[in-house]
């Protein structure tokens, strides 16, 4: 098995940070210069990129966009509590194995041969992590989403994968990546990730965008939106974030809200529009109550 981990030609197209920023912009992803720099290093150094930030600021989105840009496969692993190696790396297809054993009963194979057959690659179920390093044609983008939800044990396991890009399956041997995947890890910071893992990654913190940037993002996503509505929506959302809300709305909620207002046919936010669509921006009963009690006018004022 060839053990080359050379960069793909597609990644070599980007020679400067500006290139990356430009092409992200084309794909409707608004990235700051510092984020473009982090992505540039991800492509050039082949180091995994850990993206942290509050929910709904486009952490997952960047992996999707990157896969599009590189014209490669996106392999996604959603983390959850109790996620184990079997669900993340590989599992044997037990039912098929049992069947295989039964079918071989009459044959003259020795026990060793039977074993070898049953633990062959056709009985192997590849889970996302194994898939990502067995990719034949080109390096895929591997998205490990919401890593903070997984257990610490899993994090420790990831360390091995992220540094060597190889997986050892006792029955088959070691599989080493032909093409080193571009790894993006995301975390909402519901718990602190281990220092060891962080040190293996590039780090970028995405925060809620400022007024101008958020307007730019919403415009990119919803090209049909009127300027008046856009300004109002983004301004009100920015005001929301100032309040002590239980669930602070992210950019994706802003887009949702603007979209639902457009779908409802409003060209500006008035009381009726506010009341009927609040559910698409605020996702907690207390928050809605709080905002209602303050009234629309409190948020519309420009400070």
């Amino acid at each position: 098995m060839p053990v080359s981990t050379v960069q793909d030609s597609s990644a070599l197209l980007f020679n400067t940070i500006e290139d990356i920023r430009h092409i992200l912009d084309e794909r409707s992803y608004v990235a700051d210069e510092d984020f473009s720099a982090a992505l540039f290093l991800l492509l050039k150094l082949g180091k995994p990129l850990l993206v942290e930030g509050p929910p709904g600021v486009g952490k997952t989105e960047i992996a999707l966009t990157l896969a599009q840009i590189l014209d490669t496969k996106l392999i996604r692993l959603q983390c959850y509590e109790g996620l184990d190696v079997n669900a993340a790396v590989y599992e044997w297809n037990y039912q098929k194995q049992l069947l295989g054993i039964k079918l071989q009963e009459g044959t003259a194979f020795t026990v060793e041969e039977k074993e070898k057959h049953v633990f062959g690659s056709e009985y192997l179920l590849k889970r996302p992590l194994l898939q990502s390093i067995m990719e034949e044609d080109r390096a895929p983008v591997l998205l490990i989403d919401e890593l903070d939800r997984a257990d610490e044990e899993f994090e420790a396991f990831l360390l091995e994968l992220l540094s060597a890009f190889q997986v050892t399956i006792p029955e088959l041997g070691t599989v080493k990546a032909k093409h080193r995947p571009y790894v993006i890890l995301t975390s909402n910071r519901t718990r602190e990730l281990s220092d060891a893992l962080k040190r293996r990654c590039l780090y970028h913190w995405i925060d809620y965008p400022g007024l101008d940037k958020e307007m730019l993002i919403v415009r990119k996503r919803l090209p049909g939106i009127g300027q008046g509505l856009l300004e109002q929506v983004v301004h009100v959302v920015q005001q929301f974030r100032e309040r002590k809300l239980a669930k602070v709305p992210g950019v994706s909620e802003t887009i949702d809200w603007a979209e639902s207002l457009m779908a409802l046919g409003y060209r500006e936010i008035n009381q009726q529009a506010f009341d009927s669509s609040l559910g698409s921006i605020l996702k907690s009963a207390e928050d809605i109550q709080l905002v209602r009690s303050e009234g629309l006018d409190a948020f519309k004022q420009t400070a």
């Binding site: 940070i17 602190e192 590039l202 780090y203």
Partner: peptide, 15 residues
């Protein structure tokens, strides 16, 4: 600035 942002993603691990 670019240099600074690049090193930032290498050197930092929390906000």
């Amino acid at each position: 600035n670019r240099f600074r942002f690049a090193l930032k993603s290498l050197f930092c691990h929390s906000p």
